[in-house]
Design a protein around this nucleic acid. Structure first.
Lengths: 217, 217
DNA sequence: CGCGAACTTGACGATTTTCAAAGCGAGTGG
DNA sequence: CCACTCGCTTTGAAAATCGTCAAGTTCGCG
């Protein structure tokens, strides 16, 4: 399945539990509780696995594509059959589930303990490590989120977020980004502002060919 | 393994990945990032499964018993062998992992979107549903946490937490609790203050013999 | 009975949100 | 080609929430 920006994927199709595997692009898992505003619970990168039952009951949950990308969608039972036949698939799924829990633990610490600047720094470091490419002017990466999306991920107000971004640009840590794109001029300085940076770079945050980004921390 | 209050269990023993299954009592999974204070990432109730890799790398993580309880500890490889032999075990582990992700999603929403009163209400509802027993004066349950622990779970300050508790007692939603024990006088009113209450009661929050608590919501 | 640790409570202060107005960019139609 | 409008972002001032600090209280324990 190809996905377009903003496209929402139903988490379960007529009652049967589904599984999704991200192939390219970034997806978000968002949850809206009654009388509360939306929370973006997780950002999902290529390789990540999502099941219908990752969403809490009695909540309006959906999987939304942030930018253009590709996803495999299948019935959970089909994936189980695959896993039963091939131990490598089984191991992959187990590892993916465990690492999802670990990343959610990190996110919980981000939401619970960090002040707003640390939260923003954490997100930028995560995206830079995951999808960034180094270039002469710094690490460049796609940033297919509206301010509101980022704010809902970090538990902040969009206005507050805007202020932080301005502050980081003024401090020369960030370049002036065009639409849907961001430039981190000084990744090390940004990482110094995020208590989670070290953990993020260890957690498979380093993608193909850009291992050097991780070592810079 | 029996555990005592405050006892910390090492998440991994000399490099091999371990798995834990909670038998009784309540455990907490806590994470401390560099230059940041402790976050209690999850509360673990009987039936919950934890693996070493649930903890993020480069973080000081540990499993701490809140009150007295019992835990099974085994090597992950041993558990895998069991699961390979018995499909029921396999299914149990998969379900447990998925429901852990769902509960962390709920916790993320709690930390990111709720104000401090809603957070406290959410925790109290969760504990009441999980470990509470109805009695003439309300729902009674063990509360084996210090103020600091609760504050670190909810991302609040202990002083702030203390104020909220006083306010809830004044509003007659809570009874005056003795040490390590709490009484919820009006579960429905408390649930009305937590946007996550409905989700919590659906998520297997209702334990043996106390199904009536859930239906009251 | 007195000590110490944990909890409570008040006043104050900092961070963050809210509200409102202004700015910018992209697409549209004259 | 240019003015125009719509949506999103930025920014300022005021307000609310929450955290900090310090003093007082309770409770368990020696």
């Amino acid at each position: 399945m190809r996905t377009r920006r903003g496209q929402a994927l139903a988490l379960s199709c007529d009652g049967t539990e589904m599984a999704f595997i991200v192939r390219s692009g970034v997806l978000t898992l968002q949850v809206t509780l009654p009388d509360s505003s939306r929370q973006i619970v997780a950002m999902l990168f290529p390789g990540d696995v999502v099941r219908s039952s990752y969403a809490p009951p009695c909540a309006d949950a959906s999987l939304v594509s942030a930018g253009a990308g590709g996803v495999w969608r299948m019935r959970l039972s089909a994936l189980e059959t695959l896993a039963a036949a091939d131990p490598a698939v089984r191991r992959y799924l187990d590892t993916a589930a465990a690492s999802r829990v670990a990343r959610q633990a990190l996110h919980a610490a981000t939401l619970g303990q960090f002040d707003c600047e640390q939260r923003v720094a954490t997100l930028l470091v995560e995206l830079a490590l995951r999808t960034g490419v180094s270039s002469p002017s710094g690490v460049v990466f796609e940033f297919p989120f509206g301010r509101k999306d980022v704010a809902d991920y970090l538990g902040l107000n969009p206005d507050t977020l805007s202020r932080i971004m301005s502050r980081l640009k003024e401090a020369r840590l960030l370049g002036h980004s065009q639409r849907n794109r961001a430039v981190v001029r000084d990744l090390a300085a940004l990482a110094a502002r995020s208590p989670a940076a070290r953990s993020l770079s260890e957690m498979g945050g380093v993608h193909f060919g850009e291992a050097s980004l991780g070592t810079a921390l």
